[in-house]
Computed example of a mutant assay.
Amino acid sequence: MRAVLHPLRDRLPVETAVQFGAQLPTLVRGVYYDGWRPADTPVKMSNEEFFARVRSEFPYAVEGGDEKLVRTMLKTLERHVSAGEWQHLKSRVPNSFAALLP
Protein backbone atom coordinates (compact mmCIF):
# COMPACT_ATOMS: atom_id res chain seq x y z
CA MET A 1 0.00 0.00 0.00
CA ARG A 2 2.76 2.41 0.99
CA ALA A 3 4.69 1.71 -2.21
CA VAL A 4 1.80 3.12 -4.26
CA LEU A 5 0.49 5.78 -1.86
CA HIS A 6 3.75 7.71 -1.47
CA PRO A 7 4.57 8.18 -5.16
CA LEU A 8 0.93 9.09 -5.81
CA ARG A 9 0.91 11.64 -2.98
CA ASP A 10 4.23 13.13 -4.06
CA ARG A 11 3.04 13.50 -7.64
CA LEU A 12 -0.01 15.57 -6.64
CA PRO A 13 -0.15 19.31 -5.98
CA VAL A 14 -0.19 19.91 -2.21
CA GLU A 15 -3.84 21.01 -2.05
CA THR A 16 -5.01 17.98 -4.03
CA ALA A 17 -2.85 15.65 -1.93
CA VAL A 18 -4.42 17.01 1.26
CA GLN A 19 -7.99 16.80 -0.07
CA PHE A 20 -7.40 13.23 -1.20
CA GLY A 21 -5.71 12.22 2.06
CA ALA A 22 -8.57 13.64 4.13
CA GLN A 23 -10.94 11.09 2.61
CA LEU A 24 -8.82 8.03 3.31
CA PRO A 25 -9.60 5.73 6.23
CA THR A 26 -7.64 6.73 9.34
CA LEU A 27 -5.09 3.91 9.22
CA VAL A 28 -4.46 4.39 5.49
CA ARG A 29 -4.22 8.17 6.03
CA GLY A 30 -1.39 7.59 8.51
CA VAL A 31 0.55 5.57 5.94
CA TYR A 32 -0.22 8.16 3.26
CA TYR A 33 1.15 11.11 5.27
CA ASP A 34 4.11 9.27 6.82
CA GLY A 35 7.30 11.16 5.99
CA TRP A 36 5.60 13.67 3.69
CA ARG A 37 7.39 16.94 2.94
CA PRO A 38 4.81 19.20 1.26
CA ALA A 39 7.49 21.73 0.30
CA ASP A 40 9.07 19.07 -1.94
CA THR A 41 5.91 18.37 -3.94
CA PRO A 42 4.65 17.97 -6.55
CA VAL A 43 7.35 15.80 -8.07
CA LYS A 44 7.13 15.53 -11.83
CA MET A 45 7.60 11.95 -12.91
CA SER A 46 6.75 9.89 -15.94
CA ASN A 47 4.76 6.69 -15.59
CA GLU A 48 8.02 4.78 -15.95
CA GLU A 49 9.55 6.78 -13.09
CA PHE A 50 6.41 6.21 -11.02
CA PHE A 51 6.61 2.44 -11.57
CA ALA A 52 10.35 2.49 -10.79
CA ARG A 53 9.61 4.19 -7.48
CA VAL A 54 6.90 1.63 -6.68
CA ARG A 55 9.40 -1.15 -7.51
CA SER A 56 12.02 0.39 -5.22
CA GLU A 57 9.50 0.48 -2.35
CA PHE A 58 8.03 -2.95 -3.12
CA PRO A 59 10.78 -5.08 -4.71
CA TYR A 60 8.75 -8.29 -4.77
CA ALA A 61 7.53 -10.00 -7.91
CA VAL A 62 3.80 -9.63 -8.43
CA GLU A 63 1.76 -11.70 -10.83
CA GLY A 64 0.76 -9.31 -13.58
CA GLY A 65 3.63 -6.91 -12.85
CA ASP A 66 3.88 -3.44 -11.42
CA GLU A 67 1.03 -2.01 -13.43
CA LYS A 68 -1.40 -4.60 -12.08
CA LEU A 69 -0.19 -3.89 -8.53
CA VAL A 70 -0.75 -0.15 -9.01
CA ARG A 71 -4.16 -0.60 -10.69
CA THR A 72 -5.33 -2.96 -7.92
CA MET A 73 -4.24 -0.54 -5.19
CA LEU A 74 -5.86 2.44 -6.94
CA LYS A 75 -9.10 0.53 -7.48
CA THR A 76 -9.16 -0.30 -3.77
CA LEU A 77 -8.55 3.35 -2.84
CA GLU A 78 -11.34 4.48 -5.15
CA ARG A 79 -13.83 2.64 -2.92
CA HIS A 80 -12.94 4.90 0.01
CA VAL A 81 -13.01 8.26 -1.75
CA SER A 82 -16.03 10.20 -2.99
CA ALA A 83 -16.69 10.11 -6.73
CA GLY A 84 -16.17 13.87 -6.91
CA GLU A 85 -12.80 13.70 -5.20
CA TRP A 86 -11.74 10.78 -7.40
CA GLN A 87 -12.59 12.80 -10.51
CA HIS A 88 -10.69 15.78 -9.09
CA LEU A 89 -7.68 13.52 -8.50
CA LYS A 90 -7.86 12.26 -12.09
CA SER A 91 -7.97 15.82 -13.37
CA ARG A 92 -4.82 16.77 -11.46
CA VAL A 93 -2.49 14.12 -12.89
CA PRO A 94 -1.14 13.81 -16.44
CA ASN A 95 -3.45 12.04 -18.88
CA SER A 96 -1.01 9.15 -19.23
CA PHE A 97 -1.25 8.50 -15.49
CA ALA A 98 -4.98 9.23 -15.28
CA ALA A 99 -5.44 6.28 -17.65
CA LEU A 100 -4.29 4.01 -14.81
CA LEU A 101 -7.00 5.30 -12.49
CA PRO A 102 -10.28 3.38 -12.51
Rank of each mutant, 00 (worst) to 15 (best):
residue 86 W to T: 01
residue 55 R to F: 02
residue 50 F to Q: 05
residue 67 E to V: 12
residue 19 Q to E: 15
residue 19 Q to H: 13
residue 102 P to G: 05
residue 11 R to D: 09
residue 12 L to R: 02
residue 46 S to N: 06
residue 77 L to V: 11
residue 43 V to M: 12
residue 53 R to N: 14
residue 87 Q to T: 14
residue 79 R to D: 07
residue 69 L to F: 13
residue 10 D to M: 10
residue 53 R to C: 06
residue 6 H to I: 14
residue 16 T to H: 05
residue 71 R to E: 05
residue 22 A to C: 09
residue 23 Q to D: 08
residue 75 K to T: 15
residue 62 V to G: 01
residue 43 V to Y: 07
residue 5 L to C: 01
residue 43 V to F: 10
residue 23 Q to I: 05
residue 44 K to Y: 10
residue 28 V to G: 02
residue 88 H to R: 13
residue 31 V to C: 00
residue 62 V to D: 03
residue 19 Q to W: 13
residue 20 F to W: 06
residue 98 A to F: 05
residue 7 P to L: 08
residue 45 M to T: 04
residue 70 V to L: 06
residue 17 A to R: 07
residue 36 W to C: 07
residue 78 E to K: 15
residue 53 R to H: 09
residue 95 N to Q: 14
residue 73 M to W: 11
residue 86 W to N: 04
residue 35 G to T: 06
residue 83 A to T: 15
residue 88 H to E: 13
residue 75 K to L: 13
residue 76 T to E: 15
residue 70 V to M: 01
residue 70 V to K: 03
residue 20 F to P: 10
residue 36 W to G: 11
residue 30 G to T: 03
residue 84 G to Y: 02
residue 9 R to W: 02
residue 67 E to M: 09
residue 86 W to H: 12
residue 53 R to I: 10
residue 77 L to P: 10
residue 45 M to W: 00
residue 35 G to Q: 06
residue 17 A to C: 05
